[in-house]
Design a protein around this nucleic acid. Structure first.
Lengths: 128, 128
DNA sequence: CGGCATCCTCGATGATACTG
DNA sequence: CAGTATCATCGAGGATGCCG
């Protein structure tokens, strides 16, 4: 495992290098894997939600952090934002194609972890 | 589309609820999506690595954070740790089955983001 | 080499209050 | 309802030094 592994590592290293430095992808990854980003994306995966709905959907998030997280995700092109100029105002958020694209592995990640940790609800699997 | 969506949301909400509270999965997700956790897992995906190799593989990580991140991941059962009592000591890390299981969607996430951002879209993005 | 302990800083986060 | 602004805090994370 030490012999040929070095070559593979060289490849991997080169690839991640672009990434750890100034690649814009780094920011997106940070936003997605941010404390609240992942839950926003997963929540919006099932359907579009308004600010208020989103807030109560994600337990423990403050208005500030929700707004902040949403802003970052909208800027990254993962989430769209639709404003209805009614009274009271109504703002809806949803996933863009990119957002759904990213949300899929995110949900998969979440599923695999919960599946592994709650053997009673999703079939017992032997721990490593 | 908005009508039936409420029901789906009810399901989703109930499901995530268990999760935002005290589910152990929450901790694992936090560790995996922590600032360095994701890179450790992705790095170890290609092959097992020693502490030192891991450190230079992940640009910008400090020894402290690497050790801390590794400890959490080992505790969560995502990473194994093998100590060779030689001089100098030699410690190797690698992914458990669980770790590989989790690393897959993580890599997929990373790939989708870079794929989306790589094609010449550099420079057109607003910095925040 | 691998890693832990300590100190210290800074930014993310939360609470509160205020607008449109 | 959907934010924004301000302030206070708390802990993640970096720097340094010591040890097996």
């Amino acid at each position: 495992m030490t012999g040929g592994a070095q070559l593979m590592q060289a490849e991997a290293e080169e690839r991640y290098e672009a990434f750890h430095t100034e690649c814009p992808a780094r920011d997106v990854v940070d936003h997605v894997t941010s404390r609240w980003g992942i839950w926003v994306l997963i929540s919006l995966r099932s359907n579009d939600l308004r600010f208020y709905e989103l807030r109560k959907s994600i337990q423990g998030i403050s208005e500030k952090m929700l707004a902040q997280t949403l802003r970052a995700l909208v800027q990254d092109g993962l989430v769209w934002r639709k404003v209805e100029p009614t009274t009271p105002p109504q703002v809806t958020y949803g996933l863009t194609e990119f957002g759904r694209d990213v949300g899929e592995p995110l949900t998969e990640l979440f599923d695999r972890i919960t599946r592994r940790l709650s053997p009673r609800s999703a079939g017992a699997r032997p721990a490593h």
